[in-house]
């Protein structure tokens, strides 16, 4: 039984990779959009952005601040688009062949998610090469640490994409969810602007944003990338979780999303 589960998962994951590299437009879409966004927003907002890592100096420009969020956006785009293939698999008939085979349902999730994760991590690593131009502390530990964050972030996001895609019967619905749920999730992750700290003077709006951002699991992924890349403390007027908390929440997000995906996959596709 375990043999079937392992061989099924690895075959499904391998298939995702083969399909990805045979569709070059997917490679361009997943990395191109975040890259263009990073350059346009980064350069455009450079003059008006005033967050500094220490809160005292102005040594971080927006291109720098925005880069960890861009890496997470690459993860999100790739991971989520990899799971859109669930919808295609259903409409093209491939999924029904998998569902009538004697593989445990969780191995279908695992195969799809591993495939999506590998693709997303490859793209994020490619994007990371740009960081050579940024004042990052390059060392092996930091790179391995980032690699681990990419794997965990991509895994959780791919599981989330799987859960959403399983319920939908067309790609248009997925794009609607992308705009309504996933983009706000990314915008509220501290990728684009920092999380305001709560004080006695905080407005209701600031309080809402603070709590929404705190409940956003992507906040912790972005926070991990930012802290590992820049090894700096956020200014006091902004909130940032510490490394341990960020890791704990990121891994919990992965575990919960995987369990939900395994539950969802038992329902008829």
């Amino acid at each position: 039984m375990n043999n079937v589960a392992v061989s099924a998962s690895s075959s499904l994951a391998r298939r995702e990779l083969i399909r990805f590299f045979r569709q070059p437009n997917r490679v361009i879409g997943a990395i191109g959009t975040p890259l263009v966004m990073w350059l346009l927003f980064g350069l455009g907002l450079e003059e008006s952005f005033s967050v500094s890592p220490s809160g005292e100096t102005q040594d971080e420009n927006f291109l720098q601040y925005y880069f960890p969020g861009t890496l997470v956006l690459v993860l999100m785009f790739t991971a989520i688009f990899a799971t859109i293939s669930v919808i295609e698999d259903r409409s093209e008939g491939f999924l029904q062949g998998v569902l009538v085979s004697p593989v445990p349902r969780w191995s279908i999730v695992l195969g799809k998610v591993i495939g999506g994760t590998v693709i997303a991590v490859l793209q994020a690593v490619l994007m990371l090469l740009i960081a050579i131009a940024l004042p990052m502390q390059w060392n092996l530990v930091a790179v391995l640490h980032l690699f681990g964050i990419f794997v965990a972030g991509a895994f959780g996001l791919t599981c989330l994409g799987f859960v959403l895609a399983w319920k939908l019967d067309n790609v248009h619905g997925f794009h609607a969810i992308m705009n309504l749920l996933l983009m706000p999730m990314w915008l509220l992750s501290g990728a684009f602007f920092p999380i305001p700290e709560l004080t006695a003077q905080s407005s209701v709006g600031q309080m809402m944003i603070h709590w929404l951002m705190k409940f956003d699991p992507l906040t912790y992924v972005v926070s991990l990338v930012r802290q590992v890349m820049y090894e700096s403390q956020q200014a006091e007027k902004f909130w940032q979780p510490d490394l341990d908390t960020s890791w704990f929440i990121t891994l919990s997000f992965c575990a919960v999303m995987f369990l939900i995906a395994c539950r969802v996959v038992r329902q008829p596709a």
Binding site: N3, V4, S7, A8, S10, S11, L12, R15, I18, R19, R22, Q23, E92, G93, F94, L95, Q96, G97, V98, S101, P102, V103
Partner: peptide, 25 residues
């Protein structure tokens, strides 16, 4: 055998068959 083929059109014949074999261990 379904009415609409359950093959992956982007994969080769051999890749499809190997995938199926993996599904049955």
């Amino acid at each position: 055998v379904f009415q609409s083929p359950s093959l992956d059109r982007k994969l080769t014949v051999l890749e499809n068959l190997r995938h199926q074999a993996a599904m049955y261990g």
